[in-house]
Computed example of a mutant assay.
Amino acid sequence: MSSDRRPGLLVVDTTQPLVLYVSGHITRADAPGLCADLERRLVGLDPTDVVCDVGALAQADLAVVDALARLRLTAGRLGHTLRFRGAGQELRLLLALVGLDETVV
């Protein structure tokens, strides 16, 4: 989903999924802020697909998996689906260990 600022009404393209970019070094302390940001974006929207682009993450560890799992739960609680794109091999293996490998595109 993307938006285009024009005078007047906000135009939202609902034919495209909402894309959330997660990058850099993620710690357990980052998870609540990421989830709050996602919730702010999703509140009031009709159920939609959300793509979480993780291709620019600095590392693949359990803190990242925890944050991604929490993002998925946040989206699901609001009636949306969340899929991950751009996951490297290490992150794919970790997601498989916790049963989230079906969410990787």
Rank of each mutant, 00 (worst) to 15 (best):
D101V: 08
A56H: 09
R70Y: 00
T15A: 13
V54L: 04
D30F: 04
D13W: 01
A58T: 01
D66Y: 08
D49I: 00
P32I: 02
R83L: 10
A36R: 13
L20A: 13
C52Q: 01
D13Y: 03
H80P: 11
L9Q: 12
G79R: 03
A31W: 04
G88F: 04
V50M: 00
P17A: 11
L68F: 00
F84Q: 04
G76E: 15
C35Q: 12
Q89K: 06
T74K: 02
C52H: 02
G8V: 09
L45H: 12
D13I: 07
V98S: 13
R41G: 08
R92K: 13
D66H: 14
D101Y: 01
T27L: 08
R28Y: 15
F84C: 08
A75N: 05
L68W: 00
Q89C: 04
F84R: 07
L45A: 11
L20N: 05
V11F: 01
V22W: 00
L94S: 03
L71H: 01
T48F: 00
R85V: 15
L68R: 00
L34D: 12
T81R: 14
D53F: 00
M1G: 14
A60V: 03
F84M: 09
V65R: 01
A63E: 08
L68Y: 00
S3Q: 13
L71D: 02
A56Y: 03
A63K: 00
E102Y: 10
R41A: 15
V54S: 02
Q16E: 15
G99Q: 10
D37G: 09
V105I: 11
D37T: 13
G24N: 07
D37M: 09
A67V: 03
Q89V: 13
D37N: 09
R41C: 14
D49T: 08
V98P: 12
A69T: 09
T81K: 05
D66K: 01
L95D: 06
V104T: 13
C35M: 04
L97F: 09
V11E: 14
L9V: 11
L91S: 02
E39L: 10
G99A: 10
R70E: 11
G44F: 03
V19A: 06
A69D: 06
T27Q: 09
L91H: 02
V65L: 01
P32W: 03
T48Q: 12
L62Y: 12
V50E: 00
D61G: 13
G8T: 08
L95N: 05
D53K: 03
T15L: 11
D37V: 05
L38F: 10
D30P: 09
T15Y: 04
L97S: 13
L34G: 12
G86C: 08
L42Q: 06
R77I: 02
L34W: 04
V50Y: 00
L34H: 14
L97A: 15
G44I: 04
L73T: 13
D13H: 08
M1K: 03
G99N: 11
T74A: 07
S23V: 01
D4N: 11
L38A: 10
I26V: 15
